[in-house]
Computed example of a mutant assay.
Amino acid sequence: MNICLNLRTLIKLEACVLYVVLWLCLMTVHFQSWIIPKHYHTPESDIALQNYKPRGESENSGHHSNKTAAQIYTGPSNSDVMKWFIHGPKLVQLPQKSRKHPHLMSYDVQKEVCHRGAVHLLIYIHSAPQNGYKRDEIRNTWAGVHNFKEIYVERVFLVGETDDKQVIENVENERKQQDDIILCHFKDSFRNMSLKAIALLDFVNNRCTQAKYILKTDDDIFVDMYALIEKIIPQIMKKPKSIVCERKYNHSIVTDRNSKWYIPPDLLTVTDKGKLPTFCTGYAVLFTSDLVPLLLNASYETPLVQVDDVYMFGFLLKRVPGVNVIDSVNSFTLNQELGMTEYQDRTKPIEHFVVSASEKGTQEKLWQNAIDKVSLFGKEIMNHNLLPYEY
């Protein structure tokens, strides 16, 4: 009798173990078949990354060129690149002033932004409230916060207010889901872009002081981040108060009050002779974070100019002594046709790592081609395990 009972107990135990094993197998299949595909972004990227070889292993250039000899990566390792950021510029916070800022307007930001520890690179993007699809394209491509192995990236969109109630509701839902929107409490318009710039300076100075490098751009711009880090960061990592941008020289002031480029003549001195100060075009600007408190301090004393790039990277920047400026005219372009041709041609290297992407779907196309043409350096720092997925 006891033998029968023990046998039954053993059978039941084996059945339970078998059930648990089958359940785990089914859940694994379910996860791989349903959960992962929901977050999968570009199968083409996954194909491109299959040829990834760790540092030191040979790489065949394949269809990227006519070379048949294996390529050996001899550049800086991922740990070497991390030193560029760890030992990068340090922001010395501008103390809170007792007097009220003449131009700063209130803004709201989610608590998660810049609250996850180190921030090696902060990307801030000017975006109109109705451009939710553009923000999604950017999140899912070049500005993904998990695109690198160890480089910590934070991304924020500066968005103003609108009278469209449906758009307001959409932005609020997006803020709750994404945790990457700074909502500025003023009307979103071209004439208020400089107010966004001041809000960003205040945000970094008071809430993101750990940032090392800052990239400013717009929501219709694509940036090849791997090329940007490879080509630009080494040039500025040991040079404080550095800025990289396409510079504009000797531009005459626009005196037509009906023009969106209008700037009051009384803001210029007699010695300016009707010319604007040299400034950076605002579609893409990379600068070291130690400039933030200096620019913010200058904004207390500088009358507001409605053209934001002229204001922030012209009038404010000229008040900061000893700035190291690198002109990126050969690396940044607003010629979208040129950019698409360059990224799609697999026989030529990428020369412009900042490109206009104003048409819907262009961000994804440029991103896929950038991954397909990524350099050996890019493969060294990219997070090739998680890269094809959305975050």
Rank of each mutant, 00 (worst) to 15 (best):
residue 257 R to M: 12
residue 289 S to Y: 03
residue 111 K to P: 00
residue 312 M to P: 00
residue 349 P to F: 04
residue 69 A to Q: 12
residue 136 D to S: 02
residue 223 V to S: 07
residue 77 S to Y: 07
residue 24 L to Y: 12
residue 5 L to S: 11
residue 363 Q to E: 15
residue 186 F to N: 10
residue 312 M to H: 05
residue 198 I to R: 06
residue 267 L to A: 04
residue 153 V to G: 03
residue 258 N to I: 00
residue 204 V to P: 00
residue 135 R to L: 01
residue 206 N to G: 04
residue 273 K to C: 09
residue 4 C to M: 13
residue 75 G to I: 06
residue 371 I to T: 08
residue 289 S to T: 15
residue 363 Q to D: 09
residue 96 Q to T: 13
residue 290 D to L: 03
residue 147 N to L: 11
residue 35 I to F: 13
residue 198 I to P: 04
residue 302 T to K: 01
residue 25 C to P: 00
residue 66 N to K: 12
residue 17 V to F: 15
residue 60 N to W: 14
residue 287 F to I: 01
residue 49 L to E: 09
residue 73 Y to V: 04
residue 102 P to H: 10
residue 381 I to M: 11
residue 245 C to W: 02
residue 48 A to M: 06
residue 164 D to N: 15
residue 41 H to L: 08
residue 260 K to W: 08
residue 371 I to L: 11
residue 372 D to Q: 12
residue 388 P to F: 11
residue 109 V to T: 11
residue 201 L to I: 06
residue 206 N to V: 01
residue 337 E to P: 00
residue 154 E to M: 09
residue 370 A to Q: 04
residue 140 N to A: 04
residue 158 L to F: 14
residue 357 A to V: 05
residue 261 W to Q: 09
residue 122 L to I: 05
residue 385 N to R: 14
residue 251 H to F: 05
residue 167 V to F: 05
residue 329 V to R: 08
residue 388 P to V: 06
residue 236 I to A: 08
residue 264 P to C: 04
residue 324 N to D: 07
residue 286 L to W: 06
residue 210 Q to K: 13
residue 138 I to N: 01
residue 143 A to P: 05
residue 112 E to G: 06
residue 134 K to G: 01
residue 293 P to M: 04
residue 228 L to V: 10
residue 102 P to K: 06
residue 34 W to S: 11
residue 244 V to E: 04
residue 16 C to S: 10
residue 95 P to K: 10
residue 168 I to W: 10
residue 233 I to P: 00
residue 263 I to E: 08
residue 114 C to I: 03
residue 309 D to I: 01
residue 118 A to D: 14
residue 166 Q to E: 15
residue 250 N to H: 12
residue 97 K to C: 04
residue 169 E to A: 15
residue 278 T to F: 04
residue 242 S to N: 10
residue 117 G to H: 09
residue 130 Q to R: 13
residue 227 A to M: 10
residue 295 L to D: 05
residue 268 L to C: 08
residue 219 D to S: 10
residue 181 I to R: 01
residue 216 K to V: 00
residue 52 Y to D: 12
residue 226 Y to G: 02
residue 333 T to G: 03
residue 184 C to R: 03
residue 275 K to R: 14
residue 368 Q to F: 02
residue 374 V to Q: 14
residue 155 R to D: 02
residue 382 M to R: 07
residue 73 Y to R: 09
residue 371 I to P: 00
residue 249 Y to G: 00
residue 344 Q to F: 08
residue 20 V to F: 12
residue 140 N to W: 06
residue 291 L to C: 08
residue 387 L to S: 09
residue 110 Q to E: 13
residue 369 N to Y: 08
residue 265 P to E: 15
residue 260 K to F: 07
residue 119 V to M: 03
residue 306 Q to R: 12
residue 373 K to G: 03
residue 236 I to T: 08
residue 124 Y to W: 13
residue 243 I to W: 02
residue 270 V to N: 12
residue 285 V to S: 03
residue 376 L to F: 05
residue 20 V to K: 07
